[in-house]
Design a protein around this nucleic acid. Structure first.
Lengths: 253, 253
DNA sequence: CATAACTGTGAGCAGTGCTCTTGATTTTTG
DNA sequence: CAAAAATCAAGAGCACTGCTCACAGTTATG
């Protein structure tokens, strides 16, 4: 793949029409900046991301990159969106490789893919699920869209579990009906839930499962519990607990 | 409380013996630096913490504070320890105000205190439970000790639940025995568990509950789920789910 | 073709963490 | 009590950061 083709491929809605050498070069440089920035992010973390260093790596002067990127924060935003998409891709791929009727297996695949991705890209994970970056309020309008991709997967899984009557009773999980409705009733108006039979209690179970899962991954990636003798086994344990919140055991059916 | 008294009080193991004006002043300045730094941390966050700004606020030259604080990272470490202690105090106070026999109430108090503290000190919370700070590996030997204070509370609660036969069956929670033992068996050698009858499966339940609880708080403080119509209600829901993992309903007993 | 838009360069500003020297003050020691 | 040792505030300085601006050159467009 030569530079031009790569540039065209990197373009958002690339018109196949011929591009001037200027537009072509701009896209290539934009892609290069993102590529190098991703590299720096992976090694030095978000706070170590320096526009000047990126510029140096590309052999251009620091002020030059401001022609392509408005500010350091804007570059961070692009990386965040990138990370969301990368995560969503990884999770979706793992999820779709499982027999759709194996609800528990789908949840496990989802959780394991999340964990694997997070361990492989700890800085990207920190970027999207860690503490918000310094002085930088994530522009919701650009990130939440990419961020909901994983959520959408969860919703379909939850809906499939519902129609298969495999969702456990909320009351048996310590989830009272009233607060769940108050907290999540309004959320069900989201188009994401259109056509599904998901009710507030079920959604609460889904949120609880997701929270537990994400907490497990966060805890491991940030090693909040100190050094653990067997982290994978602990994850499997927590994964089981989280699965239990959204889908009943197949054998128990 | 005059400066001298405050300084003496701030001293770690203050010998009541008379101190030279030099040592007295040093302690006062150390306390001042921490005080101002805490203020900056609360308003600007960890990344916005600048030694020079702290120095300015204290009317001294930037290089001066290096007489009292080895580096910015070391100052951060002190603030982290401080935050751990502050959190542990808040949680313990809330926990101890509840009837010891009310196991569920104790868990709820614990969780609510954690949430309240986190919402009141978001930057401190991010410091200890968020992504690790840039280029800064938390010196475990100084933080974990303070960090285990909250854990110790959980352990006593778990042990009390055990001796009251109020711990739910692990298998009913989706927590398989084998991985739990593999992951947590070694941890039970920790002196923290000496004399308790806690077994791996129970510990796994405790870890799961804590993970879910911490995940719920993290999710809210960092608003990972976007704007929620009724965050407190959602927290109560998740709190119920987490409680259900470690202590059975009183009515069901 | 000429004009307008774009792109890379280098200087410069304000800020950061941190080091080092210098001179003054306080504490400890002979 | 005086001299030596430890401590301290101050300022200059280094290397780095994000970011702006004026100044060439290059490309696209009227």
């Amino acid at each position: 793949m030569d530079t031009a083709a790569r540039a065209a491929h990197a373009a958002h809605a690339a018109p196949a029409a011929k591009l001037g050498k200027r537009a072509r070069n701009r896209r290539a440089v934009e892609a290069d900046i993102l590529r190098v920035a991703r590299g720096h992010l992976a090694t030095s973390g978000a706070a170590g991301l320096s526009l000047r260093a990126v510029a140096r790596d590309l052999g251009m002067v620091s002020s030059g990159v401001y022609r392509y990127v408005e500010s350091r924060d804007e570059l961070l935003t692009r990386l965040i969106v990138d990370s969301y998409l990368s995560l969503a891709d990884a999770v979706r791929a793992a999820h779709d490789a499982v027999d759709p009727d194996d609800l528990g297996g789908r949840w496990d695949a989802l959780g394991r893919a999340l964990r694997t991705w997070a361990l492989e890209h700890p800085h990207d994970f920190a970027l999207i699920y860690g503490s918000p970056v310094p002085d930088y309020d994530a522009p919701a309008e650009r990130t939440t869209e990419a961020g909901t991709a994983v959520m959408a997967l969860l919703v379909t899984l939850l809906e499939d579990a519902r129609s298969a009557r495999r969702v456990p009773e909320a009351s048996g999980l310590g989830i009272p009906e009233a607060p769940a409705t108050a907290a999540l009733g309004a959320l069900l108006a989201d188009p994401m839930f259109a056509g599904t039979g998901i009710d507030p209690a079920m959604l609460a179970q889904g949120v609880a499962a997701w929270t537990l899962l994400l907490g497990a991954v966060t805890s491991e990636v940030f090693s909040q519990l100190g050094p653990l003798p067997d982290a994978p086994a602990l994850f499997e344990t927590l994964l089981g607990a989280s699965r239990h919140l959204v889908v009943t055991d197949a054998s128990a059916n």
